[in-house]
């Protein structure tokens, strides 16, 4: 019993400790922002490896999610004779929820895990330490550009996901199942609200990009510098990002759409 209590206490302390280190890490990262602005080249390189290289997985997943939404939506809506509103249903689900959430989960798996492994290995091979000894601050040179690249890429990737998904829904809905193409687009245009749906969706993906990049970089930086340590850190990035994305999605949804 006492042992269990002690364990619980030690674990709680360890998690608060980690939260503290994580917050400190975030502040240091943010303080490196100016140097990112002064050296846009570093940011562009990271935008490529974090954002552009995630392009394919986001596009293909978005297409399939949209196609499934088209199918499922059609079967349900046609029971009520409302298949003309398929476009609204597909677009609203994507722009409000699935676009930001699924693309953030994919982003954590594709780019987040890569960032953690990269930083963790740089730590394990003394590259970060070596930079410090060369009087180059790794927070400014390595961490901050990757962080901002993640924050910038995420909303763009989410928008891409939604756009491709809407096209996928249209391919299935009008191409395969015979929903009127004009109705698909015009209903969508009429019913979707710019502020309520699109802006809120973008806000969500900005939050997810921020949290995923933070978690991925911190886990890498905080990893135990061995092969096992880096592998565990990579796993933690994906798991913790997924929890944070889904938990925050609930909170954000409640805040954004709660008064409707």
């Amino acid at each position: 019993m006492i042992d269990n209590l002690q364990n619980l206490g030690a674990q709680t302390r360890a998690s608060f400790n980690k939260l503290g280190r994580g917050t400190f890490f975030l502040l240091q990262t943010l303080s490196g922002t100016l140097s990112v602005l002064l050296r846009p080249r570093l940011l562009v390189n990271q935008l490529y490896s974090v954002g552009v290289l995630s392009f394919l997985i986001i596009t293909i997943s978005g297409l399939f999610v949209g196609m499934v939404l088209g199918l499922q939506g059609y079967y349900t809506l046609s029971r009520f004779g409302a298949e003309e509103t398929l476009g609204v249903m597909v677009a609203a689900s994507l722009v409000r929820e699935l676009g930001p959430v699924v693309s953030a989960l994919l982003f954590a798996g594709r780019a987040g895990s890569a960032l953690t492994a990269e930083i963790g290995l740089m730590k394990a091979t003394e590259q970060l330490s070596g930079m410090e000894m060369m009087a180059v601050d790794p927070m400014k040179r390595i961490i901050a550009p990757r962080f901002w690249a993640g924050c910038i890429s995420m909303p763009l990737l989410a928008a891409l996901f939604s756009a491709v998904g809407i096209i996928g829904g249209q391919l299935v809905g009008s191409g395969l199942l015979g929903v009127d193409e004009g109705a698909y687009w015009s209903q969508m245009q009429a019913k979707l609200d710019f502020q309520d749906d699109i802006v809120n969706g973008i806000l969500k993906s900005i939050v997810f990009g921020f949290i995923t990049s933070w978690i991925a970089l911190f886990e890498g930086y905080d990893a135990i510098p061995t092969s096992e340590g880096v592998s565990r850190a990579t796993t933690r990035t994906v798991v913790n990002s997924a929890f944070s994305i889904l938990g925050l999605d609930f909170i954000l949804t409640a805040l954004m759409f709660g008064d409707h």
């Binding site: 091979t125 003394e126 590259q127 330490s129 070596g130 930079m131 410090e132 000894m133 060369m134 009087a135």
Partner: peptide
């Protein structure tokens, strides 16, 4: 540190 060079065991090349 700009006036100190350090050679790490692994080399620590980027």
């Amino acid at each position: 540190r700009k006036r100190i060079g350090m050679l790490f065991q692994s080399g620590a090349l980027l």
